[in-house]
């Protein structure tokens, strides 16, 4: 690590050189150049079929599916973690397939079937995967859990549908339901409390019940 003074000098040099570079670019390109004006915000009306119910909403085109669910429809079960597709807390299903709802625009889902955690069980009647997460302590703080449950269901469906993963051996044979398969397929859902071993146990139990 450089001492602070060296860093200061380096930073100043950097700023000076990038300012010079910026000026030379400006000189080469006339100001009229190619930066189209940012348009006024645009609002669109879309219908999302959320957990089987058609919901018509008006949204700014910039609204992600995640924000439409949470902020417009007040379905706050779907969580916002990183908002960049890296953590999986926002995992929902669209027409049956799991996606990161933070990396999709609500306007792109007009007429789509959206599945959220609110459509899976209730506190009084837990879905088997939810019950297994409780039984096996598949969480601590619980923030990632809705996304984990969504992915857990999808993982079992994807294995049954014969969709291969990085952990799959023979690509032309039926896929074996192994710990390695489940772990690999759950890698898009981070748990900062580190409940991974218990999440694996919960998913395995449900997989065995279904078998």
């Amino acid at each position: 690590m450089s001492p602070p003074i060296a860093f200061e000098i380096r930073r100043r040099t950097l700023l000076a050189s990038s300012a010079a570079a910026a000026m030379s670019v400006a000189a080469q390109r006339p100001a009229a150049a190619k930066t189209p004006a940012v348009p006024a915000p645009e609002t669109r009306t879309v219908t999302l079929n959320v957990n089987g119910t058609a919901r018509q909403i008006a949204v700014d085109t910039r609204t992600t599916l995640l924000d439409a669910l949470r902020e417009t429809l007040h379905l706050t079960g779907t969580k916002k973690g990183c908002d960049h597709g890296q953590c999986g807390a926002c995992t929902c299903t669209v027409n049956g397939a799991r996606i990161n709802s933070c990396l999709s625009l609500a306007v792109m889902h007009d007429g789509d079937e959206i599945g959220t955690i609110e459509g899976i069980g209730t506190p009084e009647a837990l879905d088997p995967m939810q019950a297994a997460f409780v039984k096996h302590d598949g969480f601590q703080c619980g923030y990632c859990t809705p996304g984990q449950i969504q992915s857990a269901h999808a993982v079992l469906d994807e294995i049954r549908a014969g969709i291969p993963s990085h952990a799959t051996g023979d690509l032309t044979a039926a896929i074996a339901l192994t710990d390695a398969e489940i772990r690999e397929r759950m890698s898009g859902n981070l748990c900062r409390c580190g409940a991974y071993a218990n999440i694996l146990a919960a998913i395995t139990e449900v997989a065995e019940q279904d078998a």
């Binding site: 999986g88 995992t91 996606i99 990161n100 999808a154 994807e158 993963s165 032309t172």
Partner: peptide, 23 residues
């Protein structure tokens, strides 16, 4: 693809996450 161009399946499933590959 899995039968005749398996290197493509292998490359695809080595990338991203299940959620991202669905989209």
């Amino acid at each position: 693809v899995r039968r005749d161009w398996p290197v493509l399946t292998r490359a695809l499933v080595a990338g991203a996450s299940g959620q991202l590959r669905n989209k």
